[in-house]
Amino acid sequence: MEAVGGEGRPEVQGAAASPGSSGRGQSSVKPVWALLEEATQMKTEGNAFYREKNIRSAIGRYHRALLILRGLDSDVMSSVKGFGPEIPALTPEQQALMRSTQVDCYNNLAACLLQKKNADYARVHEYSLRVLQWQPGNVKALYRAGVATLEMGDAQTAKQYLTKACREQPNDTNVRKHLQKAEEKLNRELQKEKAMYRDMFSSGLTSSSAEGVTQTDS
């Protein structure tokens, strides 16, 4: 993990309460950089658990990192402004570190969920969309959003995500494989729809012909 802080680190511009550290009538306040370091450490531990295939522990670490960062994110906390501690103003460097850590954690959470036997594709899609709000061209998020929407039955939207991912990484075999699956599913749906309309048209012609015969005989 890259060291966050150390010599030459900019001065702390604000402080925030550490999640779960508040007591009755008082709260433990940590500097912004300390919270960023803590969140980064949680992410690093989550990565280690993921490599060990300890998915449950990895998910727990990523969630803890995001919880820490939640109190620093003005986009998240603006809806509760005035009901809690004042959100510290982050320097551009702090803001960039917070956002990159959030992106990594949401991407890694989506990866963890896809590893589970009964994957929660709706949650994978949700986490991937959060990343895409901040980084519309993030290939990992585009790919996982495509996989999730394909598994949820929306091949058209899946194709859009996967096509964008393929433009960014045309040689990625997983992206190309799932894009092909989406295109094949769309083609099957199109053929099924054409067959349905053919049957409806054929049924209509048969009905009209039968009515004509009946009228002639009478």
Rank of each mutant, 00 (worst) to 15 (best):
G5T: 08
Q215S: 11
A39T: 12
N107S: 12
M42Y: 12
G8K: 00
S207V: 01
E7Q: 10
K194R: 11
G153H: 02
P170G: 13
Q160L: 11
S208R: 04
A58V: 14
D75T: 13
V103P: 02
M98F: 04
Q94I: 07
Y121H: 07
E189W: 03
S218Q: 14
T44I: 12
K43E: 11
S21C: 11
M196G: 15
I55D: 02
Y121V: 09
V131A: 10
L129H: 04
S202Q: 10
Q102I: 11
N47F: 07
G153P: 03
G153S: 04
G46M: 08
L129K: 01
Y62K: 03
K81V: 09
L36K: 04
L162F: 03
E211I: 05
L35D: 09
G8P: 00
E7W: 07
N138V: 05
A34N: 02
L179N: 09
E193N: 03
K192Y: 13
L150G: 03
H63C: 09
T206W: 11
L36R: 08
M200S: 12
Y121E: 06
P85K: 04
G14F: 02
K192M: 14
S128N: 07
L190R: 04
R144C: 03
S22E: 13
S28M: 15
R51V: 15
E38T: 11
S208G: 10
E184R: 03
G46P: 01
E168I: 05
A96R: 09
Q102D: 10
A145C: 03
D199L: 05
K194E: 15
Y106H: 12
E45T: 13
N138T: 05
I59Y: 01
L162G: 00
S22C: 12
R167Y: 10
A155W: 02
E86Q: 09
G60V: 05
G60H: 03
Q191S: 14
Y127H: 11
A165I: 11
S218R: 12
T163E: 13
W33H: 05
R61C: 14
M200A: 15
Q215E: 13
E193H: 02
A39F: 07
K185E: 15
K164A: 12
L109S: 00
R123F: 13
L142M: 08
A122Q: 12
R198Q: 12
E183R: 01
V175N: 00
V12C: 10
A89N: 13
K30C: 11
L205V: 04
R61A: 08
E45A: 09
S208D: 15
N54Q: 10
E86I: 05
Y62A: 05
R9G: 13
L114N: 00
N187S: 13
S218L: 06
D172T: 02
I59R: 03
Y106T: 08
Q13H: 04
V124L: 06
L90A: 02
P10R: 05
R144S: 01
Q191L: 15
G71C: 00
N118Q: 09
L186Q: 09
S208M: 13
N54P: 07
Q94R: 00
M196E: 15
G146C: 04
A16H: 07
Q41T: 14
L66F: 02
D75S: 12
E126M: 07
L97A: 04
D75I: 09
K53Q: 13
I55K: 01
